[in-house]
């Protein structure tokens, strides 16, 4: 089953996605990233943004994916709530759907600065994939 959650880090915040596939786990981790800033349910998936990244292993790919989203959030002043992710080998192609930040409606709490290698893990656990790392805020 797909799901996302936050996990504790003393200074910052951990994001964790779970899914039946690697791509689903990555999409859920991205939702956890949005949830650092605001409740994803408050973000209308109106505008698509295409994202591509490539990395030497799945863990670097997760960090790159989250950092690409952080970059798009920062430069477009957007939040995303829906993710379509495809992963083939060391390449990721995705569409993130969202809308511009509305400060009164989204009450954005804090901006993510970057995804880190801390508590970084991408692995299969039984029937599901897990993708996680700590995000510096």
């Amino acid at each position: 089953m797909s799901a996302w959650e936050h996990f504790e880090h003393e200074a910052d915040i951990g994001v964790r996605g779970r899914g039946a596939t690697l791509a689903e786990a990555f999409a859920q981790a991205a939702l956890a990233l949005t949830a650092i800033v605001t409740d994803p349910a408050l973000v209308a998936p109106r505008i698509p943004v295409a994202i591509r990244c490539e990395a030497p292993d799945p863990e670097f790919l997760l960090v790159d994916w989250l950092n690409a989203l952080i970059y798009e959030m920062a430069t477009r002043h957007m939040l995303f709530s829906c993710y379509e992710v495809r992963i083939e080998g060391d390449r990721l192609e995705a569409t993130a759907w969202g809308e511009p930040v509305d400060r009164s409606r989204h009450q954005p709490a804090v901006e993510p600065k970057g995804a880190t290698f801390t508590a970084l893990q991408v692995a299969r656990q039984g029937e599901e994939w897990i993708a996680q790392c700590v995000v510096d805020v």
Binding site: F60, D64, Y71, A74, T75, K113, G114, A115
Partner: peptide
């Protein structure tokens, strides 16, 4: 601000590799 965050992000990966 964003400039420092992006420099941190990019060089962290480059140096780790």
């Amino acid at each position: 601000r964003g400039l420092g965050h992006q420099i941190g992000t990019e060089y962290l990966k480059e140096m780790a590799l």
